[in-house]
């Protein structure tokens, strides 16, 4: 079933909306949650929460790209769960490594209490990503949005893993510079 028809089911408050969403995007959302949480049980819970949040959000929300809309909800819920599970110590797995890498970017921050608005930060990241080549931007997103393994990214874009690591290192440094210029670090 096409996305618009599924969204239409939500608008009509039709129970099949959840079923159709789960059929079509269950694996996609599960994979996002699993990359963050590395736990089948927790990932399943986040995916189920995604369906409920979607049900409660549409309407009034009318997503332009339903898949990405679901992906973002799953990612946010999964990361909330991750933070809850690791409130004292950063966990391992891919997400632990991803956060360690991002730590490099924020290393120049004067204070962990530094005030900034999340919206401004998102805008700064968007602006920065548009300055990258399409390939570098895609690789950045696969790593830091989806939390994919670097070897998987290499396979996706048919390049060597060492190239992926190099590109990620370069983009992190550029991001750090950009955030400093925007006075966010």
């Amino acid at each position: 079933m096409e996305d618009q028809k599924i969204i239409d089911l939500y608008v009509k408050r039709d129970e099949k909306a959840i079923e159709k969403t789960a059929d079509k995007y269950g694996k996609y959302c599960f994979s996002i949650a699993y990359n963050v949480l590395m736990s089948h049980e927790d990932s399943e819970e986040c995916v189920n929460d995604t369906w409920i949040k979607t049900w409660n959000t549409i309407p009034p929300a009318m997503p332009e790209c339903f898949r990405i809309f679901l992906g973002k909800i799953t990612r946010n819920l999964s990361f909330d769960k991750y933070r809850y599970n690791h409130s004292e110590k950063r966990g391992g797995g891919v997400i632990g490594a991803v956060l360690d890498e991002l730590e490099e970017v924020v290393a120049g921050s004067d204070s962990v209490e530094e005030a900034y608005e999340r919206k401004i930060l998102v805008e700064a990241i968007n602006t920065y990503l548009h300055t990258l080549s399409k390939r570098d931007c895609n690789i950045f997103i696969r790593r830091y949005f989806y939390g994919e393994e670097t070897k998987d990214i290499a396979q996706r874009y048919a390049i060597k893993e060492s190239n992926v690591l190099m590109i990620l290192s370069r983009t992190r440094k550029k991001l750090q510079q950009h955030l400093k210029e925007e006075a966010l670090l």
Partner: peptide
Amino acid sequence: LFDAIGDIDDKLIMES
């Protein structure tokens, strides 16, 4: 930072 990356432009995510 990871949290903020979760709200980046949909079109960029689609491209990836």
